[in-house]
């Protein structure tokens, strides 16, 4: 009897993990498709690279930050794909990192879930000019992904329903 129970237990684990493996493989395949979609939105901008930010929704708010360099005399386009998000998040773009109390919010948007949103460096420079009244080109920006708290989330053993990612593809104009 004990051997049968052990066998059933092992079989359950194998089935569970085969399912998890399939889910994770599908998740990664989706990411690849979303990256291709985000890249297609760069249009005339030359692809420079991508940054995929992975996270799990938890019972508390989280912020994941990505620093991006902007070089002088170069225009950039950022393509954000949120089609691997189970819940919506907020994307906020600042001139300084999250430790700076005097940082300027250049752009903020929500409703990225299931969508692909494009931002250009020119609008970020314009936003900085309006708010600081200084005509300077930004040398870097910080993209903050603000992941809201999710009631009932499994913080220690998250499920696929709590798993999310944002695909960010960057391009520059030659």
């Amino acid at each position: 009897m004990k051997k049968i129970l052990t066998f059933i237990g092992i079989l359950s684990f194998v089935v569970l993990f085969a399912q998890t493996a399939a889910n994770l493989t599908e998740f990664k395949e989706n990411i690849a498709e979303q990256k291709a979609e985000a890249k297609s939105k760069l249009k005339a901008y030359r692809y420079d690279g991508s940054k995929i930010t992975y996270f799990n929704f938890k019972t508390y708010k989280q912020v994941k930050e990505v620093e991006i360099y902007l070089f002088n005399e170069t225009d950039y386009r950022f393509s954000f794909n949120g089609k691997s998000l189970p819940n919506d998040i907020t994307v906020a773009i600042y001139d300084k990192d999250k430790s700076a109390e005097d940082r300027v919010l250049l752009k903020e948007f929500t409703n990225i879930i299931g969508d692909n949103i494009v931002v250009e460096s020119s609008e970020l420079n314009d936003s900085y000019l309006v708010q600081k009244n200084e005509k300077v080109r930004l040398k870097r920006v910080y993209v903050d992904y603000i992941i809201p708290e999710t009631a009932g989330a499994q913080n220690k053993e998250p499920t696929m329903k709590e798993r999310g990612a944002v695909v960010l593809v960057m391009g520059y104009k030659n």
Binding site: F17, T20, L24, R46, D48, G49, K51, I52, T53, Y54, F55, N56, Q62, V63, K64, E65, V66, E67, I68, Y69, F71, T74, D97, K156, E157, P158, M160, R163, L168, M170, Y172, N174
Partner: peptide, 24 residues
């Protein structure tokens, strides 16, 4: 299980330009 499903990006990350952009 935790190591695979829980994989998360760091809280502070960065993107470096490609060698082609630097050459450009």
């Amino acid at each position: 299980d935790e190591a695979s499903i829980n994989f998360e990006s760091p809280d502070e990350d960065y993107h470096l330009p490609s060698p082609l952009q630097i050459a450009s």
